[in-house]
């Protein structure tokens, strides 16, 4: 059953990549340039979909963490690992895309804006949890601790957002189909679904890898004893 899931993962990735190609083609070549920001604005077609889907991935990770603490089922831990890793990748991409856009628009690579700052902070929090996972050998402890840390970090996200917002603000109003005029809709929507399918595919594949590693970890002590027994024989 796991195998068929893996094939589905590749299917999702292929479909997502195709949508992303189509949407980006529309965004780069067909959609008109924006009035003030000209061509720089076109990064919105990947930036905004990444941001939306990153929020979904963060919610997914939180859901997996809560589900694990209630169910104690290791499949939620594998999903959590996938969610954390894909989430870290997307947060990193968001910071990069944001910087690329900010340099020509605001004149600086980095700005202490609430969304940018909270994304960076959550990126570091996620990297911390992933590092923690590397140091815990007992699979049950690893799963419980990363679930606990994920819940604590997720609760922090809105607090970080609002505290940085009070502290300093410059980010432009976030883009939704309501704030963006209609010729920009199609590429934005297509790309949002493209990234969504890519993310689903990545999470499926990564979950499969995590589950396989877990299986190996659980099987390892037996084979080690087996090898020692063989050496003794």
């Amino acid at each position: 059953m796991r195998k068929s899931n893996g094939h589905k993962g590749y299917g999702f990735i292929a479909f997502g990549a195709a949508l992303l190609l189509f949407g980006s083609y529309r965004g780069l070549f067909i959609a008109p340039p924006e009035q003030y920001m000209r061509d720089v604005q076109r990064i919105m077609y990947v930036h905004v979909p990444t941001a939306w889907n990153w929020m979904l991935v963060v919610l997914f990770s939180l859901f997996c963490a809560i589900a694990f603490l209630f169910r104690n089922n290791m499949k939620w831990d594998s999903r959590l690992e996938a969610g954390l890793e894909v989430g870290a990748l997307m947060a990193f991409l968001l910071c990069c895309q944001g910087s690329i856009w900010a340099k020509p628009t605001w004149g600086v690579w980095w700005d202490w804006d609430p969304r940018l700052t909270s994304t960076a902070v959550l990126l570091f929090a996620t990297l911390g949890i992933l590092a923690l996972r590397n140091f815990v050998e007992d699979p049950m402890k690893r799963a419980t601790w990363s679930a606990v840390a994920t819940i604590i970090a997720s609760v922090d996200l809105p607090i970080i957002y609002f505290s940085v917002k009070w502290w300093n603000s410059l980010h432009q109003e976030q883009s939704t189909p309501q704030t963006v005029s209609s010729p920009f809709h199609l590429p934005l929507r297509v790309n949002a679904f493209g990234v969504l399918f890519l993310v689903i595919g990545f999470i499926m594949l990564r979950t499969r890898i995590a589950a396989a590693r877990l299986e190996r970890d659980l099987a390892e002590p037996r084979t080690q004893i087996g090898e020692e027994a063989r050496e003794l024989a």
């Binding site: 923690l132 922090d156 970080i160 502290w167």
Partner: peptide, 21 residues
């Protein structure tokens, strides 16, 4: 854990950003 001196700040620092601010 073995790497406690590294891991604790790594986990704690991002989290307490609002409190620090």
């Amino acid at each position: 854990l073995k790497a406690k001196q590294t891991l604790l700040p790594l986990l704690l620092f991002p989290l307490i950003v609002p409190a620090l601010l």
